[in-house]
Structures are given as structure tokens and as C-alpha cells.
Amino acid sequence: MTDTRRDFLKKFGAGAGATVLSGGIFSMIAGESSADVLRPPGAKPEESFSSSCIRCFQCASVCPNRAIRAVGLERGLLEIFTPYIIPRDQACMLCMKCGDVCPTTALEKISDDGDEILAKVKMGIAMVDTSICYSYSGRICGTCYYACPYPDVALKLKTFAQPVVIEEKCVGCGLCERACIHIPQAIRVYPKEKRDA
């Protein structure tokens, strides 16, 4: 009996040791997490997001637009499998299903009511690069304005359809970036962490 117990403890130690060792190597090669990524609507602040997310990727599964990805190593090892959005490929349409389905506090549950979204969602802020925007260079475009879910609230048009972002109201869904017909994009959404930096 003592023999099997000793054997068990030996194996236990070997398993734990091997796991901790590989975990050490893992955390050594896990580079710094990059914050320049758009999270799904209602996400926690970046510093606590990746520890709250259990990587069940149900938000990605429920997203009707396939905007949320949880694919792989793009964001470093510590943030692997956490959800993010590349608005140029597919932007968020603010249906708020991801928060509904999230089992943790990583994504807040927000109803799909327009005013509530405006008050609570802050994925990022859109910024207009006036040096390359069509409307600021003598051609009238305004495509971003027509894509915005909150026209005249979050995004206004000046004379000659020049877009102006109302920073306090912009939810950062990225529909304007996705719709922008200029290449490279003249309007882009930057994640909210950059705002405070």
C-alpha cells in the first residue's frame, strides 16, 4: 500500500512539475499583450478582459455577422482565443447577442435598445484622417455617414459631406471604417484603451 502511494505521489510530482515547467516556458515566450484590438461590445477594460474570458467563443459562434473572431495567435500567447473584431473585414452591427451568451463578466449584458447601446457601449472611437479623406480633398463622399448607426448623433456631416466624429457619442462599432471607400481607410476606429493613454 505504501508502495503504491509513493508511486502515486511520484507521478503526481512529475505531472505537476512538467506542467509548471511548460507553463513557465509558456509565460516566458508569451510576449506583451497588445491592446490595439477592438473587443466585442460591452467588453471589460483590456487589463482584466483576458483573465475574465474563459475562451468558450460562444460570442463568436452567436455573432450573426461573423464579425467576432477567436482564431489564434495574432494577439500573443496570453490573449490567445480571446474574441476580437477587425472592422475592415466585418464590423459589429450592435445586435448585442454576444453579451447575452457570455457566461462570465467579460462581456456585459446590454439590451439591443438603441439608447442603451449609445449609453453603455464604447468599443473605441472613430478618427477621420483628413489628409486622405475624399470629402476633405474636394470630392464629396459621405459614405461613412450613411453607414453610421447613429447618424447626426455620433457622426455629423459638415459642408461638402465632410465627416466629423462626435467623440462622446461614438460607440466604435466600425461600420464607418468598413464602409469607407478610400484605400487605405480615411476613417478608422481605435480601441478605447488608446483614449486614456
Partner: peptide, 28 residues
């Protein structure tokens, strides 16, 4: 035969990693 004790070791080690790195390594 790696021994049945190994998996309890893996469990304990992974829990320690989860606690100290703050990453959900089980999902990895």
C-alpha cells in the same frame, strides 16, 4: 504507463499556472 497520479499533477500544475499567469490555460 504514465501512471494515474500524473493527471492529478497536471491538474495541480495547471491550476497554479492559472493562478499566477492569469491565463485560462485549461482552454488552451
Amino acid at each position: 504507463n504514465l501512471g494515474t497520479g500524473t493527471k492529478y499533477g497536471v491538474l495541480a500544475g495547471s491550476l497554479a499556472i492559472v493562478l499566477f499567469t492569469g491565463a485560462q490555460v485549461f482552454a488552451y
